[in-house]
Nucleic acid binder design. Structure first.
Length: 590
RNA sequence: GCCCUCGUAGCUCAGCCGGAUAGAGCAACCGCCUCCUAAGCGGUAGGUCACAGGUUCGAAUCCUGUCGAGGGCGCCA
């Protein structure tokens, strides 16, 4: 509908251009929804924008433009208002025609080919597999999934990916933690390291190791302890928790040998990855690929990335380490690629990973990161520039933290002590629908308060229930008709004139909201702002509830009854399309 | 100290590529079920768009500064 208006205006501008009234043509005529219905349905400010170059008063130019607009069945009236706005009123018939169009398109109403099949990768969550997902990851999960689904809906070929940090020190610490807990289960007396992973899930993995393999991995506590540097159990006690845990890891590798160590490591990694996969699947989130960092290391891709930077002359050695001169590409300081001990950094892996993404030929690559990683953006972009890629192909979307509230109190979280609130606990408490909806209700840049009580509440102030209730009410009307033995014409018949019976203000308002759906989807997708969808759905639900209260649908007049039922079927379809895009269910009954 | 994000009604937030009188929900107050789910609807009230400058026909929106909130500044991941 909007594009038809745009075309109409564009044709008018082209005509004036041909006449010499305008010297330049704008790329596209700006058309917007009006805020005030008195200004019509759409308004354009082109006349004011082009007034200067036409050397005319805005209102006079507007008059010329309006005169040059071709007639259209969609447009009922055009008016010039205020300083030179062109206000366009849509014909009600055009709105009524939406009902059959929506019912015919079904799940595809709102879909478009805007993306023209361009390949886009969306990488999101990518939490380290050293523990279960916590509530902080939930926002990135829901947001990333919604962005990916939106882009797919408007015609992009979307590839969803999870980057698994399965290499590096943290994973070794996890494996060591599992082994130490296992030793405790075997009856060995050991102090658990300050820097180890203390969560219950570590016990669970250790218990399964003990259950399946008995004492096969047991080593006497004295032997493990031998020659370890002091742990720092309390700050300032002279110990070094970093050196301690690293020495413990080295001891584990030495005492268990490669194969047995690898087994414990894999057990921890796979158990946790399965857990993460399960959590996300329960939220309706799935991926095309789980990309392993270790595969990059083992295939030599990380070394290749470092070599490419070296060949391009962007690295130097200092104090035994190999540095990337990222400051040459706008970063604050240079970054280490290879440490003094010969190990590559996480950053080196990440360069290799992004290099790989680029080589896979995506038109666009989107990374969804927590806001705490914002400082990381310039260095990754710097690396892409240094490698000769266009950093603009990479979009990093930063998601601010979500703070949980329960009973008006902030819920405390701390990952270190292992007492965090897991995403699973959140989902079990508020349910999948509320979790998915609440997480995307706010702009991603906005710090978010997640009210657990509100999310659980089954009442009007909970937006999820409000929208779902609108959907259930439509089903309820149909059920009521069936119960009363009323035969309904669910499919509009062209030319039967029934839809022309939709003349009430509430009906026109509802039709106008339905008409906005494709625009809402497009805007939400292109700006990567799924929260716009939640707002749209709330508005649609509200228009429906208002209509429901103002008028009976199952009236005696069969033609009017059919028209109203067809209208609310269209509403149901759009509610379904919207909720499904957000991964939220559309219940028939509540 | 430097960098990123945010600051709009009592609360939670839309609006932000400049545009017409700043919007919604909740909470508050007043109403509405012999009628398809009242998990709903209607109405009233509520604002110096943090503050100060600047840009212009026009600024909540763009720029600069100040204040405030959160986050980031490792040879951690």
């Amino acid at each position: 509908m909007k594009s038809e208006i745009q075309q109409s205006l564009q044709q008018a501008l082209e005509a004036l251009h041909a006449e010499g009234v305008l010297t330049d043509l704008p790329a596209a005529a700006q058309v917007e929804r009006t805020r005030d219905p008195a200004h019509g349905d759409f308004a354009s400010n082109v006349a004011m924008v082009l007034a200067k170059q036409a050397r005319m008063k805005p209102r006079d130019l507007a008059g010329r433009i309006v005169a040059a607009m071709p007639a259209s069945p969609v447009i009922a009236a055009v008016a010039i208002a205020g300083p030179g706005f062109i206000n366009i009123h849509i014909a009600e018939a055009a709105y009524r025609a939406l009902v059959p169009a929506i019912l015919r398109a079904g799940p595809d109403y709102g879909r478009s080919r805007l993306g023209a099949g361009q390949r886009v990768q969306v990488e999101f969550v990518s939490a380290n597999p050293t523990g279960p997902l916590h509530v902080g990851h939930g926002r990135g999960a829901a947001y990333g999934a919604a962005v990916a689904d939106l882009l797919a809906y408007v015609g992009f070929d979307v590839h969803r990916e999870y980057y698994v940090n399965d290499a590096g020190r943290q994973m070794d610490i996890l494996a060591t933690s599992v082994w130490l807990r296992y030793l405790e289960l075997c009856g060995e007396a050991l102090d658990f390291p300050a820097n180890g992973y203390k969560g219950d899930y570590v016990w669970d993995i250790a218990a399964s190791l003990h259950r399946e393999h008995g004492d096969d991995y047991r080593v006497a506590a004295d032997v493990v302890r031998e020659g370890l540097p002091l742990d720092e159990l309390t700050p300032g006690d002279g110990g070094d928790k970093e050196a301690h845990i690293d020495a413990l890891t080295a001891a584990a590798k030495r005492l268990l040998g490669d194969n047995r160590y690898r087994f414990v490591f894999e057990l921890g990694l796979n158990t946790i990855l399965d857990d993460i996969r399960g959590d996300l699947a329960e939220l309706g989130i799935t991926y095309q690929a789980w990309f392993s960092e270790r595969s990059l290391v083992e295939s030599g891709a990380v070394n290749r990335a470092v070599e490419r930077l070296r060949e391009a002359g962007h690295v130097y050695e200092q104090a035994g380490a190999l540095w990337f001169r990222s400051t040459a590409f706008g970063d604050d300081k240079d970054r280490v690629l290879v440490r003094e001990n010969g190990q590559t950094t996480y950053f080196a892996s990440d360069i290799a990973y992004h290099m790989d993404k680029m080589e896979r030929g995506f038109t666009r690559v989107i990374d969804v990161w927590g806001a705490d990683h914002h400082g990381y953006v310039p260095r990754v972009k710097a690396a892409l520039s240094a490698l000769g890629d266009d950093p603009r192909r990479l979009d990093v979307l930063l998601v601010q933290f979500a703070v949980l509230y329960r009973g008006g109190e902030k819920v405390q979280m701390s990952t270190r002590s292992g007492e965090f609130v897991t995403l699973r606990e959140l989902r079990k408490e508020v349910g999948r629908d509320a979790a998915r909806f609440f997480y995307v209700m706010r702009r991603c840049e906005q710090h978010m308060d997640f009210d657990l009580d509100l999310a659980k509440r089954q009442s009007a102030d909970n937006p999820v229930y409000y929208v779902q209730y609108a959907h259930a009410r439509v089903a309820s009307v149909l059920q009521q008709a069936a119960d009363r033995g009323i035969a309904l014409a669910l499919t509009p018949v062209p030319g039967d004139g029934k839809l022309e019976r939709l003349t009430e203000d509430h009906e026109i308002a509802l039709l106008k909201t339905l008409a906005r759906w494709p625009e809402a989807v497009e805007a939400a997708a292109l700006t990567e702002e799924p929260h716009q969808l939640t707002h749209y759905l709330r508005t649609l639900a509200q228009d429906f509830h208002t209509y429901y209260n103002a008028h009976q649908f199952l009236v005696d007049d069969a033609a009017l009854r059919d028209a109203r039922v067809q209208l609310i079927l269209a509403v149901r379809q759009v509610l379904r399309n919207g909720l499904s895009l957000l991964g939220v269910g559309a219940p028939e009954r509540m």
